[in-house]
Amino acid sequence: MSIDSIDRKIISATASGLPLTPHPYREVGNWLNLTEEDVMARFTRLQEEGIIRRIALAPNHYALGMVANGMSVWDVPDDRASEIGPQIGALHFVSHCYLRPRSLPEWPYNLFAMIHGETRDAVEGLRAEIAGLLGNDCRASDILYSTRILKKTGMRLTERA
């Protein structure tokens, strides 16, 4: 799948957000000298192709009271990961769960699960819940709390691929 130069312009123009006007796709068309129909057809196709995952709102977890967000990390046997991963990913308090390579010796963990809660204590409780679920499959674990957001722009395209 690929995007052409007009798709690229549309994506770049809306990277920081859709305009809050009654006809946002017409407005994007006005910026780029495209018709509303063309802009809508391209957004539809880009979503069908999965290049745009979705057009949506991202809430600010912190503002909504979920101030304790921890990246829990686990060292589980590689041959158990495919069975364990979906169970952890299905937990209602886990937003993302990934299997990743270790980076030894500094980093022995291969399963990453983001946990969201309203307090550190709550998040620690949820972490214990995961530990209980993993049982002997957990060989080591840690949790990393974010202390500062240093950048959050989302994916940006360069002018030319």
């Binding site: 799948m1 690929s2 995007i3 994506i11 809306t14 990277a15 920081s16 957000g17 859709l18 809050l20 957004f43 880009l46 192709e49 999965g50 290049i51 745009i52 995952r53 979705r54 057009i55 949506a56 709102l57 991202a58 809430p59 600010n60 503002a63 909504l64 990934y98 990743r100 990453f112 959050k152 989302g154 994916m155």
Partner: peptide
């Protein structure tokens, strides 16, 4: 500040690219 973004969310992999932590 209740929302951080409102607009399209891109998938680098679907574009032939990649994300990496």
């Amino acid at each position: 500040g209740a929302i951080t973004r409102f607009g399209p969310f891109l998938d680098a992999a679907a574009m032939g690219g990649a994300f990496c932590l």
